[in-house]
Write a protein that binds this DNA or RNA. Sequence first.
DNA 1: CGCGGCTTTGATGTTCATCAAGTAAAGTGG
DNA 2: CCACTTTACTTGATGAACATCAAAGCCGCG
Lengths: 228, 228
Amino acid sequence: MDPRCTCELCELKGLFFDNLEGDHLDMLCSGKVEKEYAKGETILKEDTMINEFSYLKSGLVKLFRTDSSGKEQIITIAKPYDYVSLLSVFSNDQYNYSVSALEDSVTCNIKMEDVRSIVRDNGVLALNLLKKMSKVADKIILDSVEIRTKHLRGRVAFLLIHFSHEIYHSPEFDLPLSRKEMAEYVGMTTENVIRTLSEFRRDGILKIYGKTIQIVNMDSLKSIADFG
Amino acid sequence: MDPRCTCELCELKGLFFDNLEGDHLDMLCSGKVEKEYAKGETILKEDTMINEFSYLKSGLVKLFRTDSSGKEQIITIAKPYDYVSLLSVFSNDQYNYSVSALEDSVTCNIKMEDVRSIVRDNGVLALNLLKKMSKVADKIILDSVEIRTKHLRGRVAFLLIHFSHEIYHSPEFDLPLSRKEMAEYVGMTTENVIRTLSEFRRDGILKIYGKTIQIVNMDSLKSIADFG
DNA sequence: CGCGGCTTTGATGTTCATCAAGTAAAGTGG
DNA sequence: CCACTTTACTTGATGAACATCAAAGCCGCG
């Protein structure tokens, strides 16, 4: 094996390319490109040609769409292992959404034709991809359905719990989103998101220091998320 | 080729199993099971074990979830070619949602292990599956995001246009959903869906005879759907 | 004929968006 | 580093969109 091939050592290799060997691994290694993005930078633009398969190595990103009137709607927030440019990638010529970095992030990019060629030859990898894709899509859909059924308070609670449990694994964390972005995620206005946060603070459920959130009463928050 | 193998003649063969030959085709043919469902029957139940890959041969179905309080939320409506039990199938042990027949329907079912085995051996088929899956998931997500951004009138208009254009290919059609189900789809109450339909009727946009809808002024309806 | 489910309309109150105004924070240029 | 500008955040007041409650008409079915 080529000692210069760093993919062999990549901690994310197991995500898709676990059982890759020989020519295919070489193809991947020599062809891949890593890109760095600073917080706030755009990674992918809606309606742009897809020619790479890319996934997140580190950082945090948001997927969003821009509607006819220019307003943004956040579809999902993704962390490494979690997100991949997966959706659309195999079915479309162009991205259906934009992606930008919420924190400094690094992506690994592989030419679509290389991925296709590898999938054609390696059925186990194909199954891995199907599995990953299925999981990502399912999560987005279920989250979306759940948000749709909740009221404002429930939506904000859901979002906070999501950050606490699935991203920062702590009851205290720095929000990676502005209030406006939170609103774009839950589909409400900025003002009402703020009002809800203030309410939670008054009720002793949260402590808020700017972007730093501390969940004081997780049980209350959970019961609000589950509808109360 | 085994002359008793009817899969060879199946009009939906091209969906996934286009380039299948020999043993795999035999495996598919001998292993597959077709099932018929009458309008209203349940096809799949949420939280039930997945052990078959199934797709719709004819009819019309709805995918939905039941929330903690027992209310149903429709995720999407699917017609042949369109829907497959695709989501979840490769990533989960259990279904995340239920499926039931809106019209008399026929599904074709294949053991998951057979599908997996075929995918492992046939990379082109794997790519087809990835493509199909990507497309289905993307459509559901984008529709969901779009519905989320609209108001009541826009949502109902969107739904009617969806039926007219993508399912019945005609400005006149019989609604396969009850008013209650329409409400479950757009995430509003039954009463308000009815009110909106009545409004559209008063405004000369629709003619309504029970479940039969005739779109009289498609341009108005479209501009309402696109936000007006 | 009468019961139960689906549909429709109206009246009322709640939730939420919009508008307005003000404060804090974060860049920007001298 | 400070004045200046801009952007993010916050709170309140008002009206619009929507859910809920109530009641009546319709239709299929036993």
